[in-house]
Simulated scan of single mutants.
Amino acid sequence: MGVKIEIFRMMLYLSFPVAMFWISNQPEYFEEYVVKRKREICPPDEDIRRKELEDFKERMRELREQRLLKQAGLASKE
């Protein structure tokens, strides 16, 4: 009886994670839960958001250029 119960427990221990992995990786599940949730959290780009992001990138680029020019100017004077 001991060997049979151990075989049953081993099958249970191995089949549960495999079954959960198989279920969670089904495309229907992925589309329904993961993709829809992602779209709720991060909606598709809107023109206003895209413009704000581009403006922010441009400001950061200008600041970085100014900082690099300042550092280069200080280094050349020394």
Rank of each mutant, 00 (worst) to 15 (best):
residue 43 P to E: 03
residue 13 Y to I: 14
residue 70 K to Q: 10
residue 72 A to W: 02
residue 9 R to E: 14
residue 12 L to G: 11
residue 78 E to T: 02
residue 21 F to K: 12
residue 77 K to F: 06
residue 24 S to M: 13
residue 47 D to R: 13
residue 17 P to S: 00
residue 72 A to I: 00
residue 8 F to I: 08
residue 25 N to T: 05
residue 15 S to Q: 07
residue 41 I to T: 06
residue 78 E to H: 06
residue 12 L to I: 08
residue 27 P to N: 00
residue 72 A to L: 05
residue 20 M to A: 12
residue 20 M to C: 06
residue 74 L to F: 05
residue 43 P to C: 01
residue 69 L to S: 03
residue 32 E to V: 09
residue 39 R to P: 00
residue 78 E to S: 05
residue 5 I to N: 15
residue 24 S to F: 12
residue 24 S to Q: 06
residue 53 L to R: 15
residue 30 F to W: 11
residue 39 R to V: 03
residue 12 L to A: 10
residue 74 L to Y: 04
residue 59 R to E: 12
residue 47 D to S: 12
residue 65 E to W: 04
residue 31 E to F: 01
residue 70 K to L: 08
residue 37 R to V: 12
residue 44 P to T: 03
residue 20 M to I: 09
residue 21 F to V: 07
residue 39 R to D: 13
residue 59 R to T: 04
residue 74 L to I: 03
residue 57 K to P: 03
residue 40 E to M: 11
residue 59 R to C: 02
residue 45 D to W: 13
residue 52 E to N: 13
residue 46 E to Q: 10
residue 39 R to F: 03
residue 52 E to Q: 14
residue 24 S to K: 09
residue 32 E to P: 01
residue 41 I to D: 03
residue 25 N to Y: 07
residue 14 L to G: 14
residue 62 E to T: 01
residue 59 R to P: 06
residue 64 R to D: 10
residue 2 G to M: 07
residue 9 R to C: 12
residue 72 A to Q: 09
residue 59 R to S: 06
residue 31 E to S: 10
residue 53 L to N: 10
residue 51 K to V: 08
residue 68 L to R: 10
residue 33 Y to M: 14
residue 51 K to L: 11
residue 66 Q to W: 07
residue 62 E to M: 07
residue 3 V to P: 04
residue 57 K to G: 08
residue 9 R to I: 15
residue 42 C to D: 11
residue 54 E to V: 08
residue 6 E to T: 13
residue 45 D to L: 10
residue 74 L to D: 13
residue 60 M to V: 07
residue 11 M to S: 15
residue 41 I to C: 04
residue 48 I to Q: 07
residue 75 A to S: 12
residue 35 V to F: 04
residue 21 F to Y: 12
residue 55 D to C: 09
residue 23 I to P: 05
residue 27 P to S: 00
residue 14 L to N: 12
residue 48 I to Y: 11
residue 4 K to E: 15
residue 68 L to Y: 02
residue 66 Q to C: 02
residue 15 S to V: 02
residue 67 R to Q: 08
residue 6 E to H: 14
residue 43 P to F: 00
residue 29 Y to L: 09
residue 18 V to Y: 07
residue 17 P to W: 00
